[in-house]
């Protein structure tokens, strides 16, 4: 089923971030808080932009994901690459601390 999450880049190094349930940011899409409607996600986006911590992020926006088998899957090649890292440099692919790939 299609859901929505809020994403941004981290100010100092540009790392891709996802908005979490605790109104913080995570490097991993699996930690995202899922909105069932775009409107709901846009409300969260507005809240994220309003907070002073917004100064630590760049370019937040709402993106579409699929939620399937308890996994959050980004929609579209662009978001897949943002979530995982460049496909042409396997050594720079994003790895979750437990060693598994995103």
């Amino acid at each position: 089923m299609t859901h929505f999450v809020v994403t941004a880049n981290r100010l100092n190094d540009g790392e891709v971030l996802y908005r979490t349930a605790s109104e913080g940011w995570s490097l991993w899409i699996k930690d995202s808080i899922l909105a069932e409607t775009k409107t709901q996600a846009e409300e969260w986006l507005e809240r994220a932009e309003a907070k002073s911590e917004a100064l630590k992020i760049v370019g937040p926006y709402v993106m579409k994901v699929q939620y399937r088998d308890e996994k959050i899957i980004p929609l579209g090649q662009r978001e897949v690459i943002r979530a995982k890292g460049p496909t042409v440099h396997p050594q720079f692919q994003k790895t979750i601390p437990d060693g598994s790939h995103v």
């Binding site: 540009g14 790392e15 891709v16 760049v58 370019g59 662009r78 690459i81 890292g85 460049p86």
Partner: peptide
């Protein structure tokens, strides 16, 4: 960011998908 963006671009610094 709105204020800073043109300044960083003037110095050749872009924000791409995963990093600057």
């Amino acid at each position: 960011e709105e204020q800073f963006r043109p300044l960083r671009l003037m110095n050749g610094l872009y924000l791409q998908l995963h990093a600057y």
